[in-house]
């Protein structure tokens, strides 16, 4: 081997070398940079166009509004005088989404932990695939399932919760039903489960092996190891996953529109038929609205746009903060 090395080195030295002045593939570089810069600008332009469109179309209705747009619970933009406000829509949207989040996050984290740290490898692959498949089910199918199956079952569940847990304010009240905020929240929870679970799973997989072994070598059981190493590492990832799930729940339209039987006004009793959300209100009433009505719906859409934007910005901020630690 020693005799071959000088010969090989000499051969390598003879190979032609590119001159420093020779530029290789500059044109390709420039084209690619232009294309990617263009794509980036298109996104900004689309965002701006949506915002401008919403504001532009919303202004006429907002000028006609005889009620307080932010605090009124009424939605009667085509009446004379036009009176409408978003208070109950904000309430219904946040209530269904937050309830969905409260139900979905523990289950999603549990699924992610099971897949990454408990399940045998083959089962884990199948489970991960099934959870991802949940994300591919169209929301109209969730709506149909919610309306035709879950609503009938939830009538009984609501009655049960009301009679035994009625002392909890949210479960109180004198009426119960199936087409409730709670039912909508359950459908939403199932819909946001896959995204939360997929992102947390990804974070859990990235937990450095050294941290896992550090805990195990101290004599931690598997659950103690998860508490010492996995959850602290994954905390910000879980927060951003939950925020992305929240963003999806806030904007979900058709499944909620099908499940809820919309009524006017804010009602804290989530076992009672009724409630309304921004997206469901738009889907249910857009077709039969007059010009002011449509403009008013667009104004409500603008508010939803701002809320989801804030949630996503919040999620990004959490993710960005995490970078400082890694």
């Amino acid at each position: 081997m020693t005799s071959e090395t000088p010969a090989a080195l000499a051969k390598a030295a003879e190979r032609p070398r590119p001159a420093l002045s020779m530029s290789t593939g500059r044109a390709g570089d420039r084209i690619f940079a232009g294309l990617s810069r263009g794509s980036g600008l298109v996104i900004l332009a689309i965002m701006a166009a949506i915002a401008v469109f919403l504001v532009w179309k919303a202004i006429p209705a907002l000028q006609d509004d005889k009620a307080n747009f932010l605090t009124s619970q009424e939605w009667n933009p085509d009446g004379a005088p036009a009176k409408f406000g978003i208070a109950q829509l904000v309430f219904g949207t946040l209530m269904t989404s937050v309830l969905a989040l409260v139900m979905a996050v523990p289950v999603a984290v549990g699924i992610a932990l099971f897949i990454t740290y408990y399940a045998p490898r083959r089962l884990a692959g199948v489970m991960a695939y099934l959870v991802d498949l949940l994300a591919a089910v169209p929301s109209i199918v969730y709506g149909l399932w919610g309306l035709n199956f879950l609503v009938t079952k939830m009538t009984g569940v609501s009655g049960f919760l009301n009679s035994y847990f009625g002392w909890i304010p949210l479960f109180g009240g004198s009426e119960t039903g199936g087409r409730t905020i709670l039912t909508a929240a359950i459908v939403l929870a199932i819909m946001i489960l896959p995204i939360i679970s997929a992102i947390t799973r990804e974070v859990f997989v990235q937990v450095p092996h050294a941290h896992v072994e550090a805990a195990l070598a101290l004599g931690a059981t598997r659950w103690e190891m998860i508490r010492m190493s996995v959850l602290p590492f994954g905390r910000s990832g879980m927060v951003s996953a939950a925020m992305l799930g929240l963003g999806r729940a806030l904007g979900e339209t058709i499944a909620v529109a099908m499940v809820l039987s919309t009524t006017a006004g804010i009602d804290w009793h989530i076992l009672k038929d009724g409630g309304n959300t921004f997206a469901a209100n738009i889907a249910n009433t857009f077709a039969m609205s007059g010009p002011t009505g449509r403009s008013a719906l667009i104004a409500s859409g603008l508010v939803l746009f701002v809320i989801t934007l804030l949630v996503n910005v919040g999620a990004r901020a959490v993710v960005a903060r995490r970078k400082e630690f890694s």
Partner: peptide, 15 residues
Amino acid sequence: RRVVGMVFQRPNPFP
């Protein structure tokens, strides 16, 4: 593992 402790190649304090 509680009676046989271990120190690893790369320092791995819980971050």
